[in-house]
Deep mutational scan, measured.
Amino acid sequence: VRLVQFQKNTDEPMGITLKMNELNHCIVARIMHGGMIHRQGTLHVGDEIREINGISVANQTVEQLQKMLREMRGSITFKIVP
């Protein structure tokens, strides 16, 4: 398990697509080339996201998580399992 932190201070999309796997874990499905996450190089396709800013992603839908990420500003921390 590791923590990945980055800054999001604009309306620029993060450039990641999330999916739920068969165990209902949140997985990074795709990283858009040239997007914020791609430029930082901190997340990778297949990484499992456990928490966003200390909030568990368990029992949340992809749509709920994407909305939460769109609305966040400032420092964002993901707890991930590579």
Rank of each mutant, 00 (worst) to 15 (best):
I55K: 13
P13D: 11
K79C: 09
A29D: 08
H25N: 14
K19Q: 12
S75Y: 06
M32W: 10
N59F: 12
R50C: 15
R2I: 11
H25C: 12
P82L: 04
Q5H: 09
I31N: 01
K79G: 10
S75E: 11
L23S: 15
Q7H: 14
R50M: 13
I76E: 00
E22N: 08
Q60A: 10
M32D: 15
R70Q: 11
H33S: 13
G34I: 02
K19C: 07
R39Y: 03
V81S: 10
H44Y: 08
E71K: 13
G54C: 04
K8A: 08
Q5G: 13
I80S: 03
T10N: 08
L23C: 14
S56I: 05
Q5M: 15
H25G: 10
P13Q: 05
G15C: 02
Q64A: 13
L18I: 09
E22L: 06
G54S: 08
L3E: 15
R50N: 09
E48D: 07
N53P: 01
Q7S: 10
G41W: 01
M68S: 13
G54D: 07
T17E: 12
M36T: 13
V81Y: 11
E63N: 10
I27Y: 13
M20C: 05
R70T: 12
M32A: 15
H33A: 14
S75Q: 14
R2Q: 08
L18Q: 01
A58C: 10
E51C: 03
P82I: 04
M14D: 03
G54Q: 08
R39M: 06
M72F: 15
I55W: 08
R70A: 14
L65W: 09
I49L: 07
I49A: 01
V45D: 05
I49S: 00
E51R: 04
E12Q: 09
D47H: 00
G46D: 04
D11R: 11
I76C: 11
H25V: 06
K8E: 02
S75R: 12
L23G: 15
I76R: 00
S75G: 13
A29Q: 12
M20K: 15
G34W: 06
I16N: 02
G41E: 07
R73M: 08
V81P: 02
P13R: 05
G74Q: 03
L23N: 10
T10P: 10
T77Q: 10
V28C: 04
I16D: 00
G15N: 03
M36L: 14
P82K: 06
R2M: 14
K19R: 12
I49G: 00
N53Y: 02
P82F: 03
F6S: 03
R73W: 06
I55T: 13
M32P: 07
P13E: 06
G35Q: 07
V81T: 08
E63D: 14
Q64E: 12
M36A: 15
N53V: 00
K8Y: 07
G15K: 02
T10I: 08
I76G: 05
F78H: 00
L65Q: 03
N59Q: 07
L69S: 02
G46Y: 00
L43V: 12
K19G: 14
L65E: 00
L69P: 00
L3A: 06
N59M: 07
R39T: 08
N9H: 11
H25Q: 14
G74T: 03
H38W: 11
A58T: 12
S75L: 15
E22M: 08
I49Y: 00
I37W: 03
G41D: 09
L18P: 00
G74V: 01
A29R: 07
V1T: 14
L65V: 14
N24D: 11
P82S: 12
V4F: 07
N59A: 10
S75P: 13
R2D: 05
G54P: 00
K67I: 09
V81W: 07
V45E: 09
L43D: 00
E48W: 09
H38C: 06
K79S: 14
E48N: 03
H33L: 06
V81L: 13
H38E: 15
Q66T: 12
M14V: 12
K19I: 07
N9G: 11
G41A: 08
Q66F: 04
I55L: 10
D47A: 01
D47G: 01
T61K: 09
E22F: 04
A29K: 09
C26Y: 08
G41M: 04
H25Y: 07
D11V: 08
R73C: 12
N59S: 10
K19Y: 12
Q64K: 12
E51F: 03
Q64C: 13
V1W: 06
E71W: 08
A58F: 08
R70H: 14
N59L: 07
G54Y: 09
S75I: 06
I55M: 14
Q60S: 10
R73S: 14
F78M: 15
R30D: 12
Q40V: 09
G41C: 06
I76L: 06
I37M: 12
I49N: 01
P13L: 06
L3W: 06
V57H: 01
G46A: 02
V57M: 08
V4R: 04
I76A: 03
L65A: 05
A58D: 10
N59V: 05
V45M: 11
V1C: 09
L3Q: 14
E48L: 05
R50E: 08
L43P: 02
H33Q: 15
Q5E: 15
L18D: 00
T17M: 10
M68L: 11
E48V: 09
N21Q: 04
I27G: 01
Q7F: 12
F78S: 01
E51L: 03
H38P: 07
K67H: 15
E12M: 12
H44G: 08
M14P: 08
G15E: 05
L65F: 04
G34S: 08
T61P: 09
M72S: 14
F78C: 04
F6I: 11
A58V: 11
M20T: 07
M36K: 07
V81H: 08
F78A: 02
G46P: 00
R30E: 14
I49R: 01
E63V: 07
L65P: 00
E71Y: 14
P13Y: 05
E63F: 11
M14G: 03
G74A: 02
R30I: 03
G74N: 04
L69W: 03
G35N: 04
V4K: 04
F6Y: 07
V1E: 15
I37S: 04
I76Y: 03
H25F: 05
D47E: 03
I31C: 03
I80R: 01
S56Q: 09
D11C: 06
G41H: 08
L65I: 15
M72D: 05
H25P: 01
L69Q: 02
N9M: 12
M14C: 06
P13S: 10
A58P: 03
I76K: 00
L43C: 03
M36N: 08
K8W: 06
G35P: 02
R39V: 05
T61W: 01
L43Q: 00
N21V: 06
E51D: 03
T17C: 10
E63C: 08
I55E: 14
G41I: 02
E63A: 09
